[in-house]
Design a protein around this nucleic acid. Structure first.
Length: 286
DNA sequence: ACATCCACCTGCTCGC
DNA sequence: TGCGAGCAGGTGGATG
């Protein structure tokens, strides 16, 4: 799905519904879902059977479940992945990719993913709290992480030679931010995403991180952002933050601050939304 | 090392 | 009704 608030909603759901349970069997319905696991479906199923889930952790948009044998089950939802808690008798939907069943009955955990950009895989684990799965070494901390170092982020940001929206989407600089929350944060601080990172003052950069953090906290409190059934919590329920969006998806609608029609610009095979008046385009390029 | 771009997918909506 | 184009919340790896 999803950006940090949506992934965090899923993590919390896993903590509630899956932690403490023993995996009894695993069924891979689509091999692409585990393409990041070298062993293939048979070994994947064997790697998980009989293990108990110890916790539910997250770094940026990646999730992982430490297991009783010391390994971790990793998940990334890609653009359309869902982790759903479902009664065992639930019929297979068209995009069901992996099913995990648990000992002693109770609901299954299902990985459903229309576009198949997401996936599950298993890696060696390690000791919390500093442990980070090997595959996630390049992912920065997110701005809600207590160990996120704002001053380090700001100095790295200002040393970049790129545009601020690109930098916000760079998960090696700051994680958890995607197209929605980047646009929302930029709108809040009145900066156009095309501004040069190197020309931001420290104060502006600080304001920007503050806005990212703020919009994510607000979204989290409302269960995340969803426009349709594609982005849901583990119980299949949508969050309400789409009602609070001020920028994303609002092309031609009035800016909620000044009333000017919002503009939509093409950006990396996607769209950026901004207010032409509150967020003027920079005069100079990078 | 750093910056940029696009392939990887399915499905929906829109205009012709 | 059909069909192609364009679009969708992400990312790793190739390329410069």
């Amino acid at each position: 799905m999803p950006e940090l608030p949506e992934v965090e909603v899923v993590r919390a759901g896993l903590a509630r519904w899956v932690v403490g349970r023993e995996i009894s069997s695993v069924s891979v319905r689509h091999p692409r879902a585990i393409r990041r696991f070298v062993g293939g479906p048979t070994q994947f199923e064997a790697a998980l059977g009989g293990r108990t889930v110890r916790a539910a952790a997250r770094r940026g948009k990646y999730l992982w479940l430490p297991l009783s044998d010391g390994q971790v089950l990793l998940a990334h939802l890609g653009m359309s992945g869902q982790l759903l808690i479902a009664p065992p008798a639930t019929p297979d939907g068209p995009h069901l990719r992996v099913v995990l069943e648990f000992s002693g009955g109770g609901p299954d955990l299902r990985f459903v993913d229309q576009r198949t950009f997401g996936g599950l895989w298993v890696e060696p684990g390690g000791e919390p709290p500093d442990f980070l799965p090997a595959g996630l070494g390049h992912i920065a901390r997110d701005p809600l992480d207590p160990l996120f170092e704002e001053t380090v982020f700001i100095s790295r940001l200002r040393r970049r030679r790129t545009e601020i929206k690109r930098a916000l989407l760079d998960q090696t600089l700051i994680s958890g931010v995607g197209n929605i929350y980047a646009d929302e944060a930029l709108w809040r601080v009145g900066l156009h995403g095309g501004r040069a990172t190197s020309r931001l003052s420290v104060a502006q950069a600080r304001e920007l991180v503050g806005a990212v953090r703020e919009v994510m906290i607000e979204a989290l409190a409302q269960g995340g952002t969803s426009f349709d059934s594609l982005y849901v919590n583990v119980n299949g329920e949508s969050g309400y933050f789409s009602r609070s969006l001020n920028a994303y998806g609002r092309g031609d609608l009035p800016c909620s601050r000044c009333g000017t029609p919002m503009r939509r610009e093409a950006f990396m095979n996607r769209s950026s939304f901004s207010c032409p008046r509150c967020q003027p385009r920079p005069r100079s390029r990078i």
